[in-house]
Design a protein around this nucleic acid. Sequence first.
DNA 1: GAGACTTATCGACCGACGGTCAAGAGCAGC
DNA 2: GCTGCTCTTGACCGTCGGTCGATAAGTCTC
Lengths: 214, 214
Amino acid sequence: MVPDASGGPAYRRLGVDERRAQLIALGEKLFTSSAYSELSMARIAREAGISKALLYHYFPSKQAYFQATLQAAADELRERTEPDAALPPLQQLERSLDVYLGWIEEHREGYEKLLITAGEVPEVRAMVEEVRSATATRILGGIAGEDQPVPPGARTAVRGWLWFMDGACLDWIAHRDLSRDELRGLLIGTLFGALMASGSAEVVATLTAAATEG
Amino acid sequence: MVPDASGGPAYRRLGVDERRAQLIALGEKLFTSSAYSELSMARIAREAGISKALLYHYFPSKQAYFQATLQAAADELRERTEPDAALPPLQQLERSLDVYLGWIEEHREGYEKLLITAGEVPEVRAMVEEVRSATATRILGGIAGEDQPVPPGARTAVRGWLWFMDGACLDWIAHRDLSRDELRGLLIGTLFGALMASGSAEVVATLTAAATEG
DNA sequence: GAGACTTATCGACCGACGGTCAAGAGCAGC
DNA sequence: GCTGCTCTTGACCGTCGGTCGATAAGTCTC
């Protein structure tokens, strides 16, 4: 390093937690404004005012770093969409959807980048896929009864519907000409439509009946 | 190059079209068996038995090369799903879907890799997005009348449905426990369900009425 | 205040990547 | 057998993700 003519320290020495928090906060900012592959670790380090080696001291790889910046948001989302088991299934779904859509409105750019960039990083693809899987299981479990075997059509319908949700949400935040309630209605209506078309009419009937009677 | 001890030519010299065709055929094979980022241009050149510089002589970049290997398949798919304007809208849709699903069955691995890898290559993402956009316009134009303004809800519904299609198809080829007819029924039923839920009930009625009367 | 100790931090380095370039080798025409 | 066109090459460049031994900032002790 260049000798420090000013006499002060050549760099500031932070505690581990402090430095790590700073890097994660920076990562959240950078990864939502640039694509994963367009951000080099060298540039991230430069913007953080540290060396690349230090960045690698805190995170074993670029993918791990990216994943770490997502983890906090992912945890928060999962916790917020955790359904209230006391509610009837349909209301559980409605409430979770509401929270989900609210979260997307708050994190527009991040959500967009996440879905588009998902293909680049296997770990992130796995995260998205795991969220989809868990949600599908939750829905199928909630509507078809606990340990009943799930008919293939219903499984495909729910799986496809989760993709529908992402596509519709991307369209939503791109155009912003639909209210959140309208979108939620579209999503739930489509889920029912898909389940009906898959030959699972009775679960839809059960669902809606339980809602109107309760 | 190492002096050729055998006395024969050090390399085979091919015509431009021949070499290009060979490289595209090789690319189709390699890109369906490995992910885009896992394939280096050096390795592709090695497998083709040529130098990396020659590969770059035929294709200006790795992305352009990848895109070129997709172009043939994309053209074929687009041509095959071109609807017959003489048919009523619903039958157009059914026939195009049938062709589409058949194409996916033929190109399972390629389709899977394509959707998963789409995020990595901007050009490919643009291709997929363009196909979705064109299909959406085709569907919306066919059902809502030619130059009528499309209500936002219907647009979002169709856009989401195209994502639904990809998600359902991925589930379909992953599990293979649904017949093509069942899947097609699920897709069309879901499209109707989505349009109904978006408040475009009348277009669905028009569509199905035209089908049964025609 | 001086010295010892811990460890956060750095500069220099590596192999591999995508991409470029001027020179060379295969083949056709004479 | 020579000439010329162009297909083809080895060597090179800048940057990337990632690694490593050395160094200096801060703290603790006396």
